[in-house]
Design a protein around this nucleic acid. Structure first.
Ligand SMILES: [Mn+2]
Ligand SMILES: [Mn+2]
Ligand SMILES: [Mn+2]
Ligand SMILES: [Mn+2]
Lengths: 220, 220
DNA sequence: TAAAAAATTTAGACTAACCTAAAAATATAT
DNA sequence: ATATATTTTTAGGTTAGTCTAAATTTTTTA
């Protein structure tokens, strides 16, 4: 029995909201993320529970079952591989690919995914720095640090973003902050936590707390 | 107003059954092609007519409007480009790509199609020899000949297939009949119209009328 | 050209995925 | 500990796309 487009989206969102610890996800959180009403979410939860894809007790929130987790990770794998394809092969910007991948991720066919993976050279990360699950369904989240946790004077590597919104990514493009860039924190403003950072040993620029909170970096 | 997956499939099928002359397509023919019941087809026809995509008068069959034709050709363009991608870039066989392209053809995004087209080097034909409409929606069907219309002694080029079924394509693979092969008709059996043909000046093999009827060739 | 056959449409239902409004359960605050 | 607020579920509807059975129209045949 195949899962629908809609079911796959729910599973992917539950996975994401559930986090690494697999915490319970609330009906309202899902309504927010799926842009539907809570009542619609309840309907879907009953269905997913019947299919054995989630653990669900009324009023208690939901978690993925092992089977649901497996499906979610497959969809995430497809999403991220397609994003790599769109950026690396077709020349899209990293700010343009999310919505298209959101559709492509639901194309069925195991073989297609594996051939695509081979064609792309088995990439480990997508254009936003997110890790790509392997063919067996292993997904290892690297533990990056948020830029707000970096002290003045430290030099770090830009490794990913938390916010995937086109407007945020375009802002980073304009600032010259790309994946792999070296960021040195020069100064942090006490008042608003805005920071002054140097990119790749060149240009120095100011970034707001809002931006810092969405940048994933790695100490070297 | 976007067209659904299902509407796009109907338009594509009407286009194909309607032929170059734009002849009326019957409800039953559509039921057959869509694997649905005639009653369901009638419902959909009313909807497509309301959207101005087909000309429809009860009991009279349907034709595409200019607007419907445009949509159909866009879907066909996407289908055939994706098939080229699957065969040329991912290494699928021509017998394996139809069903996957049947899904990919419904991914929206004009930009995606144009970038894909560029990435593939603006191919003119798909892996089955079918012409790919250009970005403006021009589709020019080359006028190939069916192998049954070729006389003994003639040498022709294999240019396409009428039947796209995997089993037929695999049969051609096993026979060494690929796109671009030179076929010389050596003999035609009066009794069952089976033929003896030489492929690329090498191996000679027998092909049934059933096969001949589905091979598109070109005199040189 | 009237009867029979075939094709098509209409009527009435079903499922998936959504909705609003109301009821029930849980959480929070006095 | 009770009242109030919040969250979640239930009840009852809608739309797209499908179905079967019955009615209607068109086509074919005698
Ligand atoms: Mn999606
Ligand atoms: Mn991504
Ligand atoms: Mn299709
Ligand atoms: Mn094709």
């Amino acid at each position: 029995m195949q899962n629908s487009f809609t079911e796959e989206n729910y599973l992917k969102i539950i996975h994401s909201l559930s986090g690494r610890e697999g915490v319970e996800v609330s009906t309202n959180a899902l309504a927010e993320s799926t842009s539907t009403r809570a009542a619609s979410v309840t309907d879907m939860l009953r269905k997913l529970a019947e299919k054995g894809l989630i653990h669900y007790k009324k009023y208690q929130g939901v978690r993925l079952t092992d089977s649901g987790e497996k499906v979610a990770i497959k969809v995430i794998r497809k999403h991220r591989l397609w994003e790599v394809f769109l950026v690396e092969k077709l020349g899209f910007g990293w700010d343009e690919v999310h919505d298209i991948a959101e559709e492509l991720e639901h194309i069925p066919s195991e073989i297609l995914v594996e051939k695509l993976d081979t064609f792309l050279g088995h990439p480990r990360f997508d254009p936003h720095g997110d890790p790509i699950p392997d063919a067996k369904g292993n997904l290892t989240e690297p533990d990056y640090t948020i830029l707000t946790d970096i002290q003045v004077g430290e030099k770090v590597l830009m490794m990913g973003v938390l916010d995937h919104a086109p407007s945020f990514l375009q802002h980073l493009d304009r600032s010259g902050i790309t994946l792999g860039a070296v960021i040195e924190v020069k100064e942090i403003n006490e008042y608003d936590k805005s920071a002054s950072v140097q990119i790749n040993g060149g240009q120095t620029l100011f970034i707001s707390l809002e931006v810092s909170k969405n940048l994933l970096v790695q100490r070297r």
